[in-house]
Design a protein around this nucleic acid. Structure first.
Lengths: 193, 193
DNA sequence: TTTCGGACTTGATCCAGATCAAGAAAACTC
DNA sequence: GAGTTTTCTTGATCTGGATCAAGTCCGAAA
């Protein structure tokens, strides 16, 4: 149940032998079925979730009721409404399971306690944040300057998992195009990869 | 020379009386003239810069030689190629002064030392990072789902400083539109605000 | 196994914003 | 302050992707 988590941590920091066991107790395992919501916009986001198995998406809903997919998370990724989690404000995003999933939840309090006890985790989360900023910035530049097809190809290259597992409509929203357009692009790309 | 910096810090954390003086010594003041570069893509970004006065932009240049403005920084903002600064890799962004500017530079080593000495600064930088993530995410959603005019109006509302001080071509690039389009939008908006 | 509803595809049309082109207005030279 | 360069504006045209409108293809439920 904790394989993905420890592999994510050990990719970034060195753990003492006993620390791995210690770390486990800060997390609450949770199974969630396809289509269930982990978070509804308007609630306070009480935890960040690490995905051991399965896949989720976060999305906002605008005034006209259109959904905007903000992120996906497969095995080895974290997902949350960071702003709400860290500040305690109401969440603006919803989080929904796209497959039956197994999560490890970390509350604000557990996180704080863990950071105090296990020094390496401070570094782990700082590295995560940094990577997150870098990848958001890349996505932003891509969204402003690339064509729909180029954005699709880039996603296919960097995150083929998402392409193969998420439904087309959600990928379309994530890329900022309509499902019709993505369907055409997909045909195009499968013809001339 | 340090007014903006301390106001930025005191907005987020409480400082002991003597700490303000202590903090100063970690920074290197630097004046930079309009059109000078603080960072060239390909170099390693050795510091993050706090803007006491003036204005800068960061931008990348793609394979066809087109510039893509990633961020602006006026008084009270930080600017850097975070990825390069934190990892020591080559910078992908350039940083250029758009006005004669006064900066406070913080190197990796100074930063580390400061974080060890003055505990509140750890929190300060964590809060900065968080805010940065939240605002990047907002910008991303806007860039994918808003019309050019809406993005312009949003920027005008949130950051009128940028609109009034940066040259049109750079604002256009920041918003992901052509200068021609932004010129027309501007006329439109000035007519019907 | 049929049947129903959502998810995907395909085609026709439309439009926001790009591109191309040419002036007008600032902004740096000397 | 005249001349040169750069930036901005305006107009005409073009195009990637949106929108609208049918289908078609599932998978789940009975």
């Amino acid at each position: 149940m904790y394989e993905q988590l420890f592999s994510s941590i050990r990719d970034r920091v060195r753990l003492a032998d006993n620390e791995a066991e210690e770390i486990k107790r800060f997390f609450v395992p949770k199974k969630i079925r396809k289509r269930q919501f982990l978070l509804n916009a308007g609630e306070v986001c009480r935890y960040i979730a690490f995905v051991e198995k399965g896949m989720l998406r976060s999305f906002s809903v605008d005034l006209q009721g259109h959904e905007q997919v903000v992120s996906f998370a497969c095995e080895g990724w974290w997902i949350s409404d960071l702003s709400s989690f860290l500040s305690g404000d109401e969440a603006v995003y919803n989080i929904e399971a796209l497959e039956d999933s197994e999560l490890l939840l970390l509350t604000t309090e557990s996180m704080e306690e863990m950071l105090n006890h296990i020094h390496g985790m401070e570094r782990y989360f700082r590295l995560l944040m940094q990577n997150h900023i870098v990848s958001l910035q890349r996505r932003l530049v891509a969204s402003l300057n690339y064509s729909a097809e180029d954005k699709y190809r880039k996603l296919l290259e960097i995150n083929p998992d998402i392409i193969s597992r998420a439904p087309l409509q959600h990928i379309a929203s994530y890329l900022g195009v309509t499902p019709e357009t993505l369907s055409r692009i997909r045909k195009q790309v499968s013809r001339k990869p």
